[in-house]
Design a binder for these strands. Structure first.
Lengths: 191, 191
DNA sequence: TGAAGCCCTTAACCTAGATTAAGAAATGTT
DNA sequence: AACATTTCTTAATCTAGGTTAAGGGCTTCA
């Protein structure tokens, strides 16, 4: 539980009472590996804050191929932002890789939180800003870099992830097939 | 000037006084075709609201190739969000296509505005949310659709733009070379 | 009005990455 | 321990889209 308040403290300062408000509006849950927390076509009613384990969001295209949009490690938030903000059916799945512990904040309670602790509006605005910036950068990278350069950037940015995710998920995140990813890695080792 | 207040009214209701506050903190400017309003490596000190004409943002990669990130028609905002939010040098150019009329809001004045008219914080939060959603969708489209499908989606979403932008800019936005775009269009006509 | 650029098109050829297939390694399950 | 399942690798073949090059039709500006 501590990590959520720590995470909030990075951006806004809360009094003890305000912290209590936050804690009163969230739930904590525990999931087994490969549990699906959100499915395509469903409304994303909660956003998730990871305490333990790794979650990922992805779409499945018309050929049944999975495309990883985001990973979330402990200390990160994850949701289908389109669906969460608009409260309409979205296209993302959210799933645990390993056993995970997660804090849930429902859309409803988020709105209560805005009323009880207006500072939290600022907090979530900053999260969304950072998310927008990261997304924009990823778009630029996808349009301007080769797969090899994207992998290089990924492994420098998330060294913890490189060794604890299945390769096919990393391949999907950087936008190539697992076969090509494997070939690429072999090529890189030769250098 | 009217269009800015109309645009704001879509998301938040302002009193007359609050409207005056907004108007007192913005500037209006007029630019000739192909004027560069922001350059790579510079800090994005203003965000732009288009009244007339079309602006676009783009990066230039290491091979000198331009990649269009966004277009902005009348009634749209545009900025290098990374640079504008962090006030650090960014990588985007922003440029007019045709002669244009633009409202400028400086980062400084935006912050004054938040103090004078707290509702505006909500307004900009909504803009950023929409921007995030659009960006996320574009990432998904780039990862899951073929160039032809992306063009199809683009021309349905922005029919006004298809006929008033140089083709090479549309090609760049959807992520292909002008030559391939030309070939693709010829192929589509045959059907 | 004419030269200098753009922009668009077409076509031949090239390449990053996809697809298919099949075996090897790791992992989970009983 | 043994089976099934999933993941990773390698290799052959294929393709969406890139590159290079060349010609023609536009603007634009002297």
């Amino acid at each position: 539980m501590k990590t959520l308040l720590e995470n909030i403290a990075k951006h806004v300062e809360l009094t003890n009472e305000e912290q209590e408000s936050v804690l009163s509006l969230i739930e904590t849950d525990h999931y087994k590996a490969k549990t699906i927390l959100l499915e395509e076509g469903k409304i994303c009613t909660h956003s998730f804050f990871v305490l333990k384990g790794i979650l990922r969001s992805y779409t499945i295209d018309e050929n049944g191929v999975e495309h990883v949009m985001n990973f979330a490690c402990p200390g990160w938030w994850i949701a289908d932002m389109y669906s969460f903000l608009s409260q309409r059916p979205g296209q993302l799945f959210i799933e645990t890789n390993e056993e995970a512990e997660v804090i849930l904040l429902s859309k409803e309670n988020q709105e209560k939180l805005y009323l009880q602790v207006p500072k939290m509006e600022r907090f979530f605005r900053i999260l969304i800003e950072n998310s927008l910036i990261a997304n924009q950068q990823r778009l630029i990278d996808n349009m301007t870099f080769t797969a090899e350069a994207r992998y290089d950037k990924f492994s420098k940015k998330y060294p913890e992830l490189v060794n604890c995710l299945p390769q096919k998920q990393i391949a999907s995140y950087i936008g190539v097939t697992p076969e090509f990813f494997s070939k690429m890695k072999a090529r890189l080792l030769k250098k």
